[in-house]
């Protein structure tokens, strides 16, 4: 057998491959809500799978909206694919174009794929994740299903790694179960900061981080969707109130820490 050192090309090729493996591994380790950081409002890692569960069946629309918000933030202007289980549409209503638009999402950049069963839904997710054009994928499913296995979530994770886009798997009417997800959240609707005249305010969520890969702090955050900035933020009285928005920001940041500690 020949010594590998006598084949410089082969050695170089091997080194390149090892480096590539290292890079992939490095990204995975640093993924998720950054380990050690308590900033739950930072964008979630891309190229991985995030599980979102509705805290109660009635929170289905909240978990979908939370997923859409995360997807919108991760997509960075690229198209979003929303795979929708037919059962979810029956239970929580069909997606409404103007409603999506009012979430701050351009309906033009959204591809809605309706599937009858979970098996197809997961296949759609995999196909969409492998496409380099997709910015983020959201899959919404209703109820428990055998198809949500550990194997399925590993396949999805692999597909997400290939394409580089994140996958948000929103489920309602189901209990959290083990998966290869980077983070796992439980999402509920939350009373909004009222507007003038006691009118209901912006979309508000109570999001609990149940688990993150590689450990790290978990907790519950109250989040409000900011349509203009396309981001989640701690709830704050809206502009038009007494305090201008700019002056509000430092207070809001310290408010987060307080609420988290509570």
């Amino acid at each position: 057998m020949q010594n590998i050192h006598s084949q410089p090309e082969a050695l170089a090729a091997l080194k390149t491959r090892l480096e590539a493996l290292d890079r992939a591994g490095g990204r995975r380790a640093g993924a998720g809500v950054r380990a050690g950081s308590d900033d739950a409002f930072a964008p979630l890692a891309t190229g991985v799978l995030h599980d979102l569960y509705a805290a109660a069946p009635a929170d289905a629309v909240a978990v979908n909206a939370f997923g859409l918000g995360l997807a919108l933030r991760a997509a960075g202007g690229r198209p979003i694919v929303w795979g929708l289980h037919e059962m979810m549409a029956q239970e929580a209503g069909r997606p409404h174009g103007p409603g999506l638009h009012e979430m701050g999402l351009s309906p033009r950049d959204l591809l809605l794929v309706r599937t009858r069963d979970v098996q197809t839904l997961l296949a759609v997710g995999e196909e969409a994740l492998r496409s380099p054009a997709v910015g983020a994928v959201l899959l919404s499913a209703w109820g428990e299903a055998k198809a949500f296995s550990l194997t399925a979530s590993r396949r999805l994770t692999l597909a997400a790694e290939t394409g580089g886009a994140p996958l948000f798997l929103a489920r309602a009417g189901a209990l959290p179960c083990p998966s290869a997800a980077e983070t796992r959240w439980s999402v509920a609707s939350c009373a909004s900061e009222p507007l003038e005249g006691g009118a209901p305010g912006r979309p508000s969520f109570s999001a609990t981080l149940l688990r993150r890969r590689g450990g790290g702090a978990t907790g519950t955050w109250i989040m409000e969707w900011d349509r203009e900035q396309r981001t989640f933020r701690p709830p704050a009285p809206l502009s038009g109130g007494l305090v201008p928005l700019a002056a509000q920001r430092p207070t809001a940041a310290s408010g987060t820490a307080g609420r988290r500690a509570a």
Binding site: A92, G93, P95, H96, P98, E102, M103, R202, E228
Partner: peptide, 19 residues
């Protein structure tokens, strides 16, 4: 084109609709 939105308004149309 979709209609312009007032930045001060919360969403005035539901995200999901029953039909």
């Amino acid at each position: 084109t979709w209609p312009d939105l007032d930045p001060d308004d919360p969403p005035l149309r539901p995200l999901q609709m029953f039909d």
